[in-house]
């Protein structure tokens, strides 16, 4: 076969892509909540982690992988909805640090409770596909059946979210309540319910990320498995501009590729440092994000 496909550059790009889609998903879930409720959800990694633990608790009852995935998503939807109703609802319109602080607190509690129930020892999740890389002409190729599954799932989720927002009545209402809550209410849109729905949806997107991440990375599922992914997801969302879902996804994927190159050509430690540097520089150049059109500020 073509040696090009197993070359260093292609390998880096493809492995970067595999990580990048997970950053993109986290960034997307952050943007969904930020746009609809003006809250930067610092528990956006921890909530899906918790739901994933809950869902995969069914494994011990001999339910298969897919049944557990469904259970995880349902747990995520519930957790997201309950969080919005009981934790976040009272914080809209408060100073912007209040929801930040509450969600950081929630992050800590969720991680601690998860570690208390399930311990901090990594737990390996079953995988429906082999994680062994394909070989091309005796050389390892960057992709495995699992990474293809990972990338495909991420793309499908992104496409579904886009379709939901673009083409459905629900999406129209979700967008309207994010853009103009009061006007939407005057038109009979039940904004309160839609905000809950937005959180449910966003947590579900996060859950799918958490399932992919904890099966793919050698670490397995741990209470802190999403911490790093969350940091990269936030960096991607901030570079893309918290307002733009497309920007968040693109920035996430690019960040994944850049990270892979840094890992390969510099070293593992430098990855987050360089990512942080990119964030600082991009925020200085375009404070409202690289992919947003206007820099209007809501007064």
């Amino acid at each position: 076969m073509d040696p090009f496909l197993t070359s260093r550059i292609v390998t880096d790009v493809l492995s970067g892509l595999t990580n990048g889609v997970t950053y993109g998903l986290v960034a997307l879930s952050l943007v969904l909540i930020w746009r609809s409720t003006g809250v930067l959800n610092f528990a956006q990694g921890a909530m899906p982690m918790f739901a994933t633990y809950l869902g995969f608790a069914f494994l011990s009852y001999h339910f298969g992988y897919w049944a557990c995935v469904v259970a995880c998503v349902i747990a995520g939807l519930l957790l997201g909805g309950l969080t919005e109703r009981f934790l976040v609802r009272g914080l809209y319109g408060k100073p912007e640090i209040n929801p930040i602080v509450v969600m950081v607190g929630f992050l800590i509690v969720l991680e601690a409770v998860a570690a208390a129930i399930w311990s901090s020892t990594p737990r390996s999740l079953p995988s429906p596909f082999s994680a062994i890389h394909w070989q091309l002409a005796g050389k390892p190729f960057a992709l495995s059946p699992f990474t293809v599954y990972e990338i495909a799932t991420a793309l499908v989720v992104m496409a579904l979210v886009a379709a939901l927002f673009r083409f459905t009545k629900l999406g129209l209402q979700l967008r309207a309540s994010a853009l103009a809550p009061e006007v939407s209410r005057l038109l009979g849109v039940r904004v309160g319910r839609l905000l809950t729905l937005g959180w449910m949806l966003s947590t579900a997107v996060g859950v799918i990320t958490a399932i992919l991440v904890s099966a793919n990375f050698f670490s397995g599922l741990t209470p802190t498995v999403m911490d790093g992914i969350f940091a990269y997801g936030f960096i991607a969302a901030a570079i893309g501009g918290l307002e733009s879902p497309v920007g968040a996804i693109v920035a996430g994927v690019l960040l994944g590729v850049v990270n892979q190159f840094v890992t390969d050509f510099v070293n593992q430690n430098a990855v987050i440092i360089i990512a942080l540097g990119i964030l600082v520089v991009s925020l200085m150049v375009r404070p409202s994000g690289v992919f947003t059109k206007s820099s209007q500020r809501r007064v």
Partner: peptide
């Protein structure tokens, strides 16, 4: 809603 098209605004009203 300025970010919506004319038709989207109307669709929202009819919802």
């Amino acid at each position: 809603i300025g970010e919506f098209t004319v038709e989207e605004n109307l669709r929202l009203g009819a919802m």
